[in-house]
């Protein structure tokens, strides 16, 4: 058995994914307040180091890690990030971390008042998935990697003839996005009413399991020779997101930025990758200071209200 780190949900004042020191810290009661993306798409990534004109690849600290208790919304978020970061021109830092990961999911039985994952067609995307059966968990493997892992740690598992039923696979949702065909709604004027309530704080971007936009910038040391080029996450709701040298801003209005986020989530990504970007986790509504309910807005426009 190879030793691996475990990353799993922990709850203090808020719930989030952390590297686990003590198994008792693991908390699986509900979905986490924060997504898991920081473990793959780091909050600060050194892209390369330089000294004068000499450049070199950074060293990367990697640990084989089991990501445990990840819900389907976050797992699909990883799947979407794979589509971006592991395309024809793969991002090496993301890839290295993904190669070293086992995604060990936990099936949700019921969402809260904000999530709506049934509306966005989530896919089975995991190495292993746990289904809570009260006094035991049923484990489903989704990949070869998952099977090998089960075999390696077989002393923790028991073989069973018990099947995972269709009922087990259901997730009860309390919220619904009634359509993902929103192209025709772009010109609808009522977006403006919703967008003007937006504080443009960017919380939705940071809480989203999919959002991965970034800024690249240079850091230099006091010798004024050595330094590094780094990337840090960026938020499309902030005004400066599209600012170019010379100070022109392409999406200057709040409503254009607001619609950009919604349309990227529901339409643009689907056009390119055939998957709806949004995974219905509802964090962008739950974590919005003014609880902007864009799902309700789309439903209303669809119903002609």
């Amino acid at each position: 058995m190879r030793r691996r780190d475990v990353v799993a949900p922990v709850k203090t004042d808020k719930s989030r994914f952390q590297r686990i020191e003590n198994p008792d810290d693991i908390w699986l009661d509900e979905n986490t307040d924060f997504p898991i993306k920081k473990f793959f798409f780091s909050n600060r990534e050194v892209l390369f180091e330089f000294s004068g004109n000499k450049v070199k690849n950074p060293s990367l600290e990697l640990k084989d890690t089991v990501y445990f208790g990840v819900r389907r919304c976050d797992l699909n978020g990883i799947m979407h990030q794979d589509m971006v970061f592991l395309d024809d021109n793969p991002d090496p830092f993301y890839k290295a971390r993904r190669d070293n990961s086992i995604l060990f999911g936990l099936h949700c039985k019921e969402g809260d008042e904000y999530c709506f994952c049934n509306s966005v067609g989530l896919k089975d995307f995991f190495d292993l998935m746990m289904y809570d059966k009260g006094n035991h968990y049923l484990i489903e493997s989704g990949t070869e990697k998952g099977l090998v892992f089960l075999d390696e740690f077989k002393k923790f598992f028991e073989e069973t003839a018990e099947m995972i039923s269709d009922n087990d696979r259901k997730i009860k949702n309390n919220k619904k996005l009634s359509t993902t065909n929103i192209k025709y709604m772009y010109g609808n004027e009522s977006w403006e009413d919703l967008a003007k309530t937006c504080l443009s704080c960017g919380a939705c971007n940071l809480l989203c399991p999919n959002c991965h936009c970034f800024t690249i910038q240079d850091e230099i040391d006091f010798d004024l020779k050595s330094g590094r080029r780094v990337r840090v996450p960026a938020a499309c709701q902030s005004k400066g997101f599209t600012r170019v040298a010379g100070d022109h801003i392409f999406r200057e209005t709040r409503v254009s930025r607001f619609k950009h986020r919604i349309y990227h989530q529901i339409q643009y990504f689907k056009e390119r990758h055939n998957e709806i970007f949004c995974t219905g986790c509802g964090r962008c509504i739950r974590g919005c200071p003014v609880r902007i309910d864009w799902v309700k807005k789309i439903n209303e426009i669809k119903d002609g209200n």
């Binding site: 704080c201 960017g202 919380a203 940071l206 938020a235 005004k239 400066g240 974590g287």
Partner: peptide, 9 residues
């Protein structure tokens, strides 16, 4: 120029 919320989140 970005809001505090971004770094806070």
């Amino acid at each position: 120029k970005d809001p505090v919320c971004i770094e806070c989140k």
